[in-house]
Structures are given as C-alpha cells and as structure tokens.
Design a binder for these strands. Structure first.
Lengths: 246, 246
DNA sequence: CGCCGGTTTGAGTCCATTCAAGAGGAGTGG
DNA sequence: CCACTCCTCTTGAATGGACTCAAACCGGCG
C-alpha cells in the first residue's frame, strides 16, 4: 500500500525500504471529511491509499475554488511539512483511506537520503506544474474547453495511477464540485457537459464518462499532457547521483 | 548579488558560502527577451538579480496566461532542474539581469547539503502556494476583486523583496500583461483600474500605484497574505536539523 | 513632425450567471 | 411497500459582467 508512494516518487534505488519503513497511521474517512483545514498547524502529511480528495480555498463571499484533485497514491500535503500553516483545506471525495506520516519523519528521511529528498522535491514540482496549468485553464479558456480539459486530465491521471483506462472512467465528483474546480457555476457545468455530450465527444451514464474519440476531445480541450510529467522513469532520473554527468 | 539567493532561501547555516560559490554566468536581457521557452530542454536555471520577469503559457487560440511574476532575488525555473522539459516560458519584464546556474551544480549542491536542498524545496513549496492562490483568484473572483488582489500581492512582495514599500510602487507591466495575468481583456483591466481609482482605493500616475488605504484595498481584494509565507525566519526553520524535536 | 505602443472611450453582443422550479434517485422511517 | 426527504441533476428565462470591435488619445522617440 505505502509502496505506491515509493513507486510514485520515482525509483530511488533501495531507499525504497526507508520509505516503506516510515511509521504511519492508517485512517479511513467518510466522504466530505476534512483531512486538513485551512489555517491549521499541521504536524503530519498524508498519502492517499484509496479514493479521491481535493484541495480547496474559500473566498470571503463563501465561494469555493478547488485547486487540485488527488487520487490513490498521491502524496498530499507535503507542503505543510515545511510551510507549517495550511493555506488551504483538503477534503475527502467519497470514502477514503489515508496514511498519515509525521513531518519530522519526512524531514529526517529527506535529510538522511538525498535521493528521497529529491523525489519529494520532484513531486512538489510536478504539483506546481499542474497548478500552473490550472491557472491557464481557468483563466484563459471558455467553459467548453475548460471542461473538456479537465476530463482529459482526469482520464490520463487515472490511467497513470492504474485506476482505469483513459477511454472510460468514473468521475467521482458532483457537478457542483466540478464547477468549483472549473471556476464556473453548477448550472453552467451541467449545460456544458450536455453540449459536449450532444456533439459526441463523450457519453455519460450517471457519473461515468466514456470518451468517444480521445483525439477529438483532446483537441476540444486544447489539452497537452506534457505538464503532467508522467514519464518519471526517464533515464536521467533513475540514478540521480550519476546523472550529474549528463 | 547572488547572496540575495542565500537570504531568500532562508538562513541555512554557513552553506551560505556553498551557495555563493556556485558557478554562475551573468547576463542582461532586454525587455521581452525569453529566459526559457516552452518546450525547451533547459540545462540551467536562473536567479533574477534585477528587474522583473513573468512566466506564461500560451493556449492554442494564441491567448496568453501569465502564471506568475517574479522580482529581483527570485529563483525562477528551479522546476526545470528536475523536470527537464519546460512546460511554460519565462520572459523578461523590462530590462533584467540574471545569473544562470547549471542544473547539475544545483543538484549536486542539493545532494551534498540537505539544508540547501530543503531551502530549494521550500522555495518550490511557496511557489506552489502562490499558484494555488492564483487559481482561486482567477477562478472565483470578479474583475475588481481580482485586480485589487494582484495589486496587494505586488505591494507586499515588493516590500518583502526590499524593492519599495507597500504604500506606493511601480507596476512594471502594461495593462495588456495585467490582463494576461488576471484572465481578463486589456480593455476591461483598464476600466477596472479606473473604477478602483475612482472610488479612491488607489491613485495612479502612469504605471505607479499609490494605495490610499491599505486595509480597504485589502478588503476589496479579499486579500490574505498568509499564502505568501513571508516569515521564513520562523524559529523552527532556522536550525533545520534541530527542529526535528519539535 | 509623424510613427508607434500603450491607454482610454463607446457601443453592441454574448457567454456565463442568477433565480427559480421541476425531475430523478437513494436512503430512511413508518 | 410506500411516503417523505435530501441531494443532485436538469431546464427555463432574464440579467449582467466581461468581451469584441473600433476609433481616438497620449506620450515618447527617432
């Protein structure tokens, strides 16, 4: 289970074991439960073992903005291991199993093992890359494109996390949550989904989405997968200390 | 000059010197010059010594979205030290002096000195926090609020970087660039600025902005500075190895 | 002086929002 | 098994905020 983490944060030699040896604490949470709350002084971070979760911020008019979505295997909340005060909340999306790990253990491990530190760092960098993409998505695309984009991202990330295939998957969120992620209103998300469906890009059954033609949806969503940095097994990455020579 | 970097990435004991000893390569660039271009395989990252720069992405309809703005002392492009392929471009905003540092030197230093690695990591985390805030800004606020927000962020960051005081500063961007950062059109940015000025929140003279009442502007912009994580000298951070006990 | 990039203004349009109400499903309790 | 509630999804109509297109203005600079 926790080896998801090891796999995910790219193959650092055999400090794999050191990662697995981290003391953790299992917990299952019901849908909607908070994992971290904005303003908290978090003392631990967590790995999603199963289910989904999302991070969000609340504007003072009460509007939410979801800033990222996470799926099994993701390491959330690494930021709080250094930043101390949570600047956003993390909430379970459906029922969820998480492993909590203490910050000091994370930091100690990072200090002892540069390759692990680097893996954490990379994870944070990829996170950042996704954030940037979301800024562009929310800031510069119209509702259809934006929505199609999110559908693509979801498809690919689920595939990458071995949770299904890109052609057809289960979208674990309500339309209201989608709206909060896309910077739209629930009503408009509904209409947008319908219009995307009506034109044959996808078909829906309850919350499951089937993509008719990946390439067409990709084009509609102006989607380019580069930002996900999904090929971590790049040869230059396998031996972090050796690749210095490159 | 490069000691800005040392100062910025929080006080790591005397591997300060190691940072200063990094081999670098100075360069001055004219306004609009690219520092990194999307799709490049970057082999170095850079420190902004003077001036401003911004990172942006281009949607396929040609629209730009600026995803962050950087000022003197900022370490940009740390991401490319690990992610290899740039997922966005960085461009000079006005004339700029930069110091380029080779990735492998950065990585080698990070490997040798955990405290430095941690500082880099923290820098990346703060970056991420700002990205999240921008997602919320662009996704959930109307034009006035959004604009006021950016004005606040700029004020505070310039102050924090010792480039001026929050009450009055020089905004180095055109309204078109502002629009690209805010997810609006230039025309609308213009009108929005005028309306904010007309109601006395700020006054403008060319591109310099003077804030009438900080607290009012802060409220208008729904601004909360926490996400900038500006107090890096937190006691738990000074001695990274010792704070394990906390 | 005349060009040029940036800012300003106006008018009309459209995309997304708001408000409001109805339909469908899942779960609960009688 | 049905009635009832709650939540999510769906639909309609009206409003409005931001966009588009276009032209004028302004200051700096060659």
């Amino acid at each position: 289970m926790v080896r998801k983490l090891g796999q995910h944060s790219l193959l650092s030699e055999e400090d794999h074991e050191a990662l697995l040896a981290l003391p953790y604490q299992l917990q299952s949470l019901d849908s909607g439960k908070y994992i971290i709350r904005e303003g908290d002084r978090a003392t631990r971070c967590c790995v999603l073992l199963s289910g989904f979760a999302y991070r969000h911020k609340i504007a003072n008019d009460g509007n939410r903005q979801i800033v990222s979505i996470h799926m099994a295997g993701d390491l959330i909340d690494l930021q709080n291991s250094i930043l101390i005060i949570a600047d956003h909340s993390v909430q379970a999306l459906g029922n969820v199993e998480v492993a909590f790990i203490n910050h000091r253990d994370i930091l100690a491990l990072a200090e002892a093992r540069p390759a692990v530190a680097r893996a954490f760092w990379k994870d944070t960098l990829v996170d950042g890359s996704i954030f940037r993409e979301w800024i562009a998505n929310v800031g510069r695309r119209d509702a259809r494109t934006r929505t199609a984009y999110l559908l693509c991202e979801f498809a690919l990330r689920q595939e990458a996390a071995d949770l299904g295939e890109r052609g057809s998957y289960w979208l674990p969120m309500t339309q209201e949550q989608l709206a909060n992620a896309l910077g739209l209103t629930p009503v408009h998300v509904n209409r947008t989904l319908q219009s995307i469906e009506a034109e044959g890009f996808i078909s829906r059954d309850k919350r499951s989405v089937t993509i008719g033609d990946w390439e067409k949806l990709r084009a509609l969503g102006d989607f380019n997968a580069d930002y996900l940095h999904l090929e971590p097994m790049d040869e230059t990455d396998v031996h972090p200390s050796r690749d210095m020579s490159r």
